[in-house]
């Protein structure tokens, strides 16, 4: 399996808080890597480091053999890194369709792609996420579940190779959560993307992920197959709340 992303020794501090502390890991092409950890463990911060919202204090990030440690976020997107947000961040004043058009137009350098072309393409992603009927609704009028779908449609429309999914299930009821998980699985089949899937509930990841990385207070405390992680005493301890790493 090819290494698609290699993060070595990443650290990030906010004031005195070490949000990420010397974390190294790799993502292999075609897999679903689960990233797990209690709230405030630094999962979102790790995604922010890799997608370029923040630059890492130490270490380096390689994407498909290219060093992207100091690359601007939009260039990383064009290379094929995309993400969704834990708390959906739609473009409130744009319709669902036009917000996906933004990704379709700018997610990758396509010469001579017109607005209409991008519109057709965006429609496909919207339909895939079950939002075709909502295409002309302003994003600020969508429900949370629809926004999650839109986040995914937007991320997929940039034609990514690697996609960071930040807590799709949070805030959804069980039925919606199941649908969201199935949607991700279908996205993986249809578009062949590699997924880094963040979740703080263990059970969901255990089923979906090929491998799991566990963060705790910014440190990587475990990495391995879901079964190993589920039986790791350290991880269990952390989730029960009595762990001091």
């Amino acid at each position: 399996m090819n290494e698609i992303l290699k993060a070595s020794n990443l650290s990030k501090h906010f004031g005195g808080l070490m949000a990420i502390d010397d974390v190294s890991f790799s993502i292999y092409e075609g897999e679903t890597l689960g990233l797990m950890g209690p709230n405030g463990a630094g999962k979102t911060t790790l995604v922010n480091l890799i997608t370029g919202k923040y630059f890492t204090d130490t270490g380096s990030i390689q994407f498909m053999g290219k060093d992207i440690t100091r690359m601007a976020p939009y260039k990383r997107c064009k290379l094929g890194i995309s993400r969704t947000y834990q708390i959906p961040r739609p473009f409130p004043e744009l319709t669902a369709l036009s917000s996906v058009i933004v990704s379709a137009l700018y997610g990758k350098d396509r010469s001579n792609q017109s607005l209409d072309d991008a519109g057709y393409e965006a429609t496909h992603y919207l339909e895939f996420c079950g939002l075709f009927s909502k295409r002309n609704v302003l994003c600020k009028d969508l429900t949370l579940y629809e926004l999650r779908g839109l986040e995914l449609a937007r991320a997929l429309a940039t034609t990514p190779k690697l996609i960071f999914v930040d807590e799709v299930m949070a805030g959804l009821n069980p039925a919606e959560a199941t649908k969201a998980v199935r949607l991700l699985e279908r996205a993986k089949e249809e578009f062949g993307v590699t997924i880094l899937w963040i979740e703080h509930v263990m059970a969901a990841l255990m089923k979906a992920a090929n491998r799991v990385v566990v963060l705790h207070y910014g440190k990587k405390i475990a990495e391995g197959l879901p079964q190993e992680i589920a039986n790791d005493p350290l991880v269990i301890e952390c989730y029960l709340g009595s762990c001091h790493v």
């Binding site: 976020p73 939009y74 409130p92 933004v102 997610g107 607005l115 937007r154 940039t158």
Partner: peptide
């Protein structure tokens, strides 16, 4: 569309390749 995206949320616009 990119102008509109920037107007709504710069950070997300950048994350989507603008």
């Amino acid at each position: 569309t990119s102008l509109a995206a920037i107007n709504d949320d710069e950070e997300v616009a950048a994350a989507m390749g603008v």
